[in-house]
Design a binder for these strands. Structure first.
Length: 93
DNA sequence: GTTGAGCGTT
């Protein structure tokens, strides 16, 4: 299950998220979203957990919790929008 | 500071 983690502090790293979520179960991958043009954190991240029940437990327990003085939002991630799809260079012409 | 980008075939 893909999990969305929002309202993170800029000081938060993938290791912090991984440590926080691995406590509830197995974490397959952690992706801290950073701005591609500035290299800074966007303030949210995604966590992938192979076990659904552990993922739900992590979501329910982590949602609304405070991490580094920031109340984070945790819920199931939505599929990516068109924003991440390749095609910046118009190739469809 | 709130839903993921890789510029060319993973």
């Amino acid at each position: 299950m893909n999990i969305y983690v929002g309202n993170l502090a800029y000081e938060t790293n993938e290791k912090d998220i991984e440590t926080a979520f691995t406590a509830y179960g197995q974490v397959s991958e952690v992706r801290l979203i950073t701005d591609r043009y500035s290299g800074r954190s966007k303030g949210f991240a995604f966590v992938e957990m192979p076990n659904q029940q552990e993922a739900e437990a992590a979501i329910q327990d982590m949602n609304g919790k405070s991490l580094q003085d920031r109340t984070i939002t945790v819920n199931e991630a939505k599929p990516r929008d068109n924003s991440g799809q390749r095609g910046g260079g118009s190739r469809s012409w």
